[in-house]
Simulated scan of single mutants.
Amino acid sequence: MDEGITMSVLERRFRRSYHPAWSAEFILDPLYLIKDVSGRYLPPFKYLTPEQEKDVDRLITRLVSPEMAHLAMMELMKWRSEGLDPLSAQAVQVRQPDPATGKMKIANK
């Protein structure tokens, strides 16, 4: 099967069902943090397209009052550069087997 056709179908379906909150959830959820070379756990901004980054900014500014929007954006930039400390990030990302199903589940929700 031609890969180009397959990718165009997937892109078209993704664009139709995409919601900006998905990008924000991906960035803000500590489960998706990535460990960098310095040992910090940073949000995965590098996996977003520029449009998705704008969606994250718009969504966060919509969720706060207009007076607090600049503070929320400053905190987002701080989150982007500093991330989460290693101890907290590892505590959030710990998984353990579920006794009922045997599947790996998040230990510290």
Score class of each variant (00 low, 15 high):
1 M>S: 09
2 D>W: 00
5 I>H: 12
8 S>E: 07
9 V>T: 13
10 L>V: 09
10 L>F: 09
10 L>G: 09
17 S>K: 11
18 Y>G: 06
18 Y>T: 08
20 P>D: 01
24 A>V: 00
26 F>E: 02
27 I>G: 06
27 I>R: 05
28 L>Q: 00
29 D>Q: 02
29 D>E: 01
31 L>C: 07
33 L>C: 03
35 K>R: 01
37 V>R: 13
39 G>V: 03
39 G>W: 04
40 R>H: 04
42 L>Y: 02
42 L>F: 05
44 P>D: 06
44 P>Q: 06
46 K>F: 08
47 Y>G: 15
48 L>K: 13
48 L>V: 08
50 P>H: 02
50 P>D: 12
52 Q>G: 10
54 K>W: 02
56 V>K: 02
57 D>A: 10
61 T>G: 09
62 R>T: 10
62 R>M: 14
64 V>S: 04
64 V>D: 03
64 V>Y: 04
65 S>P: 04
65 S>R: 05
65 S>H: 11
68 M>H: 11
70 H>T: 14
71 L>E: 03
71 L>S: 12
73 M>L: 12
74 M>T: 12
75 E>M: 13
77 M>P: 07
77 M>K: 06
78 K>F: 13
79 W>C: 05
81 S>A: 10
81 S>G: 09
83 G>C: 01
85 D>Y: 09
85 D>R: 06
89 A>H: 04
90 Q>H: 00
93 Q>A: 07
94 V>G: 08
96 Q>F: 04
96 Q>P: 05
97 P>I: 02
98 D>H: 01
98 D>V: 00
99 P>S: 00
99 P>G: 01
101 T>I: 03
103 K>P: 01
105 K>L: 11
108 N>S: 04
109 K>A: 06
